[in-house]
């Protein structure tokens, strides 16, 4: 007598599919205006949140409440986030009729990238005066991001 009545156990295949979905969910092409607009809003929101976090970190650093090492790490991570957001959005193909959105958002992202770079450099040199100056610029940039976000959202 041999074995009978086997069933295949498990659902690991489902998991695999989900993992793949998850991995690809963030990068698909933006084909329609709505998608593009949504990506623009998401990018600006990400930028806004990162700038706000950077401001908190900078304030702590300027007030001498944090170690130079941890400030450097925090700022490096935020710079990476901003430049990743910038690259991801700038390299997206805008569908016809969305050039205004692109013209509003991409320069902001580029500027933010540059400022974050400057901040990281100043932080690594523990140049507190320069940091305070850049903190002001960042605040002003944050204001413009907010305005642009309102515009793009309409």
């Amino acid at each position: 007598m041999t074995r009978s009545g086997r069933r295949t156990p498990g659902r690991p295949a489902v998991l695999l599919v989900l993992l793949t979905l998850l991995a690809t969910a963030c990068v698909g092409p933006a084909l329609r205006d709505d998608d593009y607009r949504r990506k623009a809003v998401a990018s600006l929101e990400q930028l806004e949140a990162t700038i706000a976090g950077t401001e908190v970190a900078l304030d702590a650093a300027i007030a001498g409440r944090s170690f130079a090492t941890s400030t450097a790490v925090t700022l490096r991570q935020h710079e990476e986030t901003v430049s990743w957001t910038h690259t991801a959005f700038a390299s997206r193909q805008p569908p016809p009729g969305t050039d205004a959105i692109r013209a509003a958002v991409v320069p902001l992202l580029a500027e933010a990238s540059a400022v974050m770079g400057d901040i990281r450099i100043a932080a690594n040199r523990t140049d507190v005066r320069r940091l305070a100056e850049l903190r002001g610029r960042l605040g002003e940039l944050g204001g413009r991001v907010e305005g642009s976000l309102r515009e793009v959202r309409r």
């Binding site: 007598m1 041999t2 074995r3 009978s4 009545g5 069933r7």
Partner: peptide
């Protein structure tokens, strides 16, 4: 000689053909 694994999971039917599910 039989193993429990040989028996368990095997379909059980009545002589008339009515299925009773697996063992």
């Amino acid at each position: 000689r039989l193993r429990a694994s040989d028996l368990l999971g095997t379909p059980v039917v009545e002589r008339s053909g009515r299925r009773l599910g697996r063992l």
